[in-house]
Design a binder for these strands. Structure first.
Length: 291
DNA sequence: ACAATATCCTGCGAGC
DNA sequence: TGCTCGCAGGATATTG
């Protein structure tokens, strides 16, 4: 569920909280989260002793640059959370030593902790255990399909309407599906594809190659404004997104369609509808989004 | 060559 | 009240 704005929020916070610290040890209780190397002991060997130089985002991936030319990649998938705090392991389960939001449920699903210099800890909480972590030499990592095959970043300055048009016009799938395809455009998921298409007044099942120039222009502009606004509001927490301090995002309160089935459209008061698109649910206004 | 479907997971809410 | 079941969905693997 964390998409571009949520990951951007996490990355910004991590840059303020853990820059310059060294990974001293790790704790984990779920082996399958390690995708590369698959052996947790090998993973540990790579990251321990390295300093955190910078934190970046690419699509929905969190990229942590480590000293010695290494890169740590974390993908939160749907229910992953990166938290900065302090925990004690009690009966093989982490318990937060800090008061506040970290004491809440998100604290119950921690399966990985990085122990950092200065007594800080970076934890990965993940209820559904879909999140993945990878580490290795930067060049090896950047050549993995996970990164190498991604489409352009929607908020990059060079990413203009002509590039957007050229990418989209080749696609015959429904526009919502195209917007969510990371190898077409990076970082957009179910929440923001719904929100962007409502803003642009486009029917989510409309085939991408059938969109007019005016419609493409509206989608392009909506994509930029919605994503920027969502970053400003620190993401959406309709289900369980939390920032590294355990706090919710405020885009939840200004969203127009996502998970608002049956509720009135803020433009025309018509009840928001829900449809299955490529196995996922899309939300739209049947009056505002006719084509 | 492309598209639809299954897979991984767990909690939650609907319905009986 | 307590059970079952479908749903949530990012990305990859597999089948059609």
């Amino acid at each position: 569920m964390p998409e571009l704005p949520e990951i951007e929020t996490v990355v910004g916070d991590l840059n303020k909280k853990i820059l310059g610290l060294t990974i001293q040890d790790i704790w984990y209780d779920w082996k399958k989260q390690f995708k590369l190397p698959k052996d947790p002991r090998e993973f540990k060997k790579i990251v321990v002793g390295r300093k955190i130089i910078g934190v970046r985002r690419r699509a929905k991936n969190i990229l942590i640059d480590l000293s010695g030319g290494c890169l740590l990649l974390i993908h939160q998938k749907m229910t992953g959370h990166l938290l900065v705090g302090k925990w004690k392991i009690d009966k093989n389960k982490p318990v937060s030593l800090l008061k506040g939001p970290l004491r809440e449920k998100v604290n119950d699903y921690i399966h990985l902790i990085f122990y950092l210099s200065g007594g800080k800890e970076l934890a990965l909480s993940d209820l559904r255990k879909f999140a993945k972590v990878m580490a290795g030499p930067r060049e090896t990592m950047e050549n993995l399909p996970d990164l190498a095959e991604l489409g352009p970043e929607p908020l990059d300055r060079y990413f203009d309407i002509s590039i957007f048009r050229n990418i989209i016009k080749e696609e015959r799938r429904p526009i919502k599906q195209v917007l969510m395809d990371q190898n077409v455009i990076a970082g957009i998921g179910n929440i923001y594809s719904d929100e962007i298409l409502w803003e642009a007044e486009i029917f989510p099942l409309k085939k991408a190659d059938k969109l007019s120039a005016a419609q493409l222009g509206r989608i392009f502009r909506a994509m930029k404004t919605i994503l920027k606004k969502a970053i400003r509001l620190r993401g959406t927490s309709t289900s369980d997104f939390r920032d590294p301090a355990g706090r919710e995002g405020r885009y939840t309160f200004v969203r127009k369609v996502y998970r608002r089935e049956g509720k009135p459209c803020s433009r025309c008061q018509t009840a928001i509808k829900r449809v299955k698109i490529g196995g996922r649910s899309g939300h739209y206004c049947p009056v505002c989004q006719k084509n």
